[in-house]
Design a protein around this nucleic acid. Structure first.
Lengths: 221, 221
DNA sequence: CGATTAACGCGAAGTAGCTCGCGTTAATCT
DNA sequence: AGATTAACGCGAGCTACTTCGCGTTAATCG
């Protein structure tokens, strides 16, 4: 009896299958670093990787799907620090992110993944799940900070980590300018100040943090 | 003598030309609100707008280009407030942004534009220029705040406005979750706190802002 | 170590996305 | 208002992307 399977690579994951997989993912990553997502076509991936076009279509169906798998393959791209203080952790993580996206390959990857998500619903959920998990993992540094008394008890760890990453994605996807180390510095300082001011508290935000003297952002309308 | 022109709509911009343009842009905006960018094909735009397929290709060449023009057409989508205080302005603008992106059409638009920019270099520069101009315009509220003495002299207005917008684009493009009013509240509070802490100063960031008591984000390595 | 068959390579066939040429409609200028 | 021709509608062609069928190679299991 033969088990029904839709895409190749699941019943015989080792040897040649693994080799072609790696060749394809590497080829895509390099391609993203050189010419970006704009010119990333199935044919170019086939040429660069040496894997036949039909094989690509059979296993991945589209570039969007390949790019998606490349993302999950990159999970250990940015290390999660533990320096002993939240400012230190934020700074270290921010610089890790900046280093990853400072390279053209990193920028190309995230741009490609977002573009893929815009066209393919499956890619969209994959992207969401990936970053959700990253946020939970990275949130550990916020949990530690709360335990140390560095931040309010009601601080939402995921919100803090999202706020740390946000400036980079804005810079890459919207502003479309290179990611410099100064951005990491700015992001770390900003998140630290905002978190201490209670911006990421579950109580709806703006609780006083002992640093108010020019009026907190209260009702303005 | 006949002036050489590459794309229609420039020598006779009025009447029918303007009408088809509006029909197309409206159709695309509605389509983005219903099924998103994934299913936005030239053929669907043609059907929905009642404009012939060949006309679409002649005038815009691709969906990416149409989406681009829709973006610039939307320039007045989010109003720039002037409440008298920076916290008030930040809060009002953030809620304006949240309202725009709270609707499926808004989310679909920005997602489409970013996806278009990933594939088409011209769309990329259009996107960059658009937001660059927005940042300059919105930066006026920061300039006023500095004049009032609410923020340090060396505060970079564009950096502040970028920081205000960043959480929304993260939420839409990366986290892929709906934009709620709470996000606006959080973003406004965060930027206000961060700006006062000097996170957006030109001096490289972390100058003390009179609110330090648990250690500023100094060297951690 | 041999049998089984998943995964791959290859070229041809099929399908969709895009362009072109021609006739018609209606902006723009005189 | 009339002449000029830009912009549009229409359908047939064309190119590029995607899939299919078959033979070959090499994982996996007995």
């Amino acid at each position: 009896m033969t088990t029904a399977h839709q895409t190749p690579g699941e019943t015989r994951p080792g040897g040649r299958t693994a080799r072609t997989r790696r060749a394809v993912l590497d080829a895509v990553f390099e391609e993203l670093g050189e010419d970006g997502f704009a010119t990333l076509t199935m044919e170019r991936v086939a040429q660069r990787s040496g894997v036949h076009l039909a094989t690509l279509y059979r296993r991945w169906r589209s570039v969007d799907k390949i790019v998606c798998e490349l993302l999950t393959d990159m999970s250990s791209g940015v290390p999660l620090p533990d320096t002993g203080t939240l400012p230190g952790d934020l700074r270290a993580l921010a610089h890790g992110i900046a280093r990853f996206y400072g390279a053209a390959r990193g920028r190309g990857l995230i741009e490609a993944v977002v573009a893929a998500a815009a066209r393919d619903p499956q890619a969209a959920t994959a992207l969401r799940d990936f970053f959700d998990e990253r946020l939970v993992l990275a949130g550990a540094m916020v949990v530690r900070a709360v335990e140390r008394g560095e931040l309010p008890e009601d601080t939402d760890p995921k919100a803090v980590m999202a706020a740390l990453g946000a400036p980079f994605y804005y810079q890459i996807l919207i502003a479309r300018r290179p990611v410099e180390p100064e951005l990491a510095e700015s992001a770390a300082i900003a998140v630290w100040a905002a978190a201490r001011a209670g911006a990421y508290g579950t109580g709806g935000g703006g609780r006083s943090g002992g640093a108010e003297d020019a009026g907190a952002p209260g009702r303005a309308d």
